[in-house]
Design a protein around this nucleic acid. Structure first.
Length: 94
DNA sequence: TATCTGACGATAG
DNA sequence: CCTATCGCCAGAT
């Protein structure tokens, strides 16, 4: 049986802890999981594993997942997250 | 074991 | 605001 690595378990635990309307970056997930700097690995995890709130994860720039911008934007809007131009409204604009 | 890839991050221009 | 480059980690071949 493929034994889950501590990394996978830690990342999964952080993702499972996310709630509706919550948004976090790959770097934050990695840091919360105890693997600072493993932001890329988090993306790989979400791509390889299903059943996790991937739409609640965005990059440090607030950019949505490439190839899933529409799907992610829709899900985020449903949860009350404001999205515009394919990115989360983390910073006010004029 | 070596090398390349990718749902990333930060800095430089 | 954008693209380009380097550094980071785990997975795939």
């Amino acid at each position: 049986m493929d034994a889950p690595t501590p990394f996978d378990a830690a990342v999964a635990r952080v993702l499972e802890g996310l709630e509706s309307g919550d948004v976090i970056s790959y770097g934050d997930v990695a840091a919360e999981a105890g693997y600072p700097g493993a932001a890329r690995a988090v993306g790989t995890f979400l791509k390889r594993h299903e059943g996790y709130p991937w739409w609640r994860v965005v990059n440090a720039a607030g950019r949505l997942v490439p190839g899933h911008e529409i799907e992610q934007a829709e899900r985020l809007r449903v949860e009350g997250v404001v999205v515009a131009d394919g990115r989360v409204r983390a910073t006010p604009e004029g």
